[in-house]
Design a protein around this nucleic acid. Structure first.
Lengths: 131, 131
DNA sequence: GGCATATATTCCTATATGGGAATATACTAT
DNA sequence: ATAGTATATTCCCATATAGGAATATATGCC
């Protein structure tokens, strides 16, 4: 008896692309595959100087999420980037692009004006507050 | 005695922007702040229907990373998005944009593919040499 | 002062790491 | 078969959650 409380600890790295690319080494691996060609585990190991088991594990995470695909050739595993899987991240960021893309447009200007107004107002409100 | 082996478990969510935005609820919070205006914790709570302590904690993470800034006004905390902090993610993704952005630009794609082939070839040559 | 409101913090716990070391598996060549 | 190479998997463990509940810390109002 008793109520079942479903806990939600930190999400698995294989949950989605956002979690998968949070790990720096995985981003490095992705960067190695960025040329669009297939690369063996050994190549990644040699380029990044990361222990082979670590590379295999990270590639496993990327594969589960779909960011990379694998092809067997003999004893080799040829990993290839599936860049379209990164698009959701880019799409989410699209909304914020404008904030740093155009430094001279009205957005920043308006934000600064608002901040100035509020600053004046809150100084007034918060005046004689001391303890 | 024995050697001290520094372990490196999963990085903290406050390590960098990539880790901070891996959590879906934090992205939702960011989206609420996306209008560029200041929002109180209560507003976020009401909009997203997330328990207040959870919102405060998530905002704390975002603040540590610098994605949001806070201003006190009375008992209120006014949170504001600092979108420029998201730029590193966008910059990293820039490299992959071409894979989904220009589906009709065959010329550019082929040129890049050829360049990639060349680079891969020289990598392989280098590797064989070391062996 | 006394009380309500807004927000932050603490305590708890199940879960998921990422790295190292060792081992297993699969394939190749002789 | 035997040995060697390429890659994956397993075991172990210190660390960091995210959520819920309860509590603490302001601050505002009368």
């Amino acid at each position: 008896m008793g109520i079942y409380y479903p806990l939600m600890p930190r999400a698995a790295t294989t949950t989605d692309v956002f979690n998968a690319i949070a790990e720096p080494r995985r981003r490095e691996i992705i960067d190695v595959l960025a040329d669009g060609n297939e690369h063996t585990v050994g190549e990644v190991v040699e380029i990044l100087r990361i222990p082979q088991p670590a590379v295999s594990k990270h590639l496993g995470v990327l594969r589960k999420v779909g960011i990379v695909s694998v092809t067997k050739r003999g004893q080799l595993r040829l990993y290839r980037l599936e860049p379209k899987e990164l698009k959701p991240v880019h799409d989410w960021l699209k909304k914020y692009e404008r904030f740093w893309a155009h430094h001279f447009d009205r957005i920043k200007e308006r934000a600064e004006r608002r901040a100035a107004d509020r600053s004046a107002q809150s100084s007034r409100l918060l005046k004689d507050k001391e303890k």
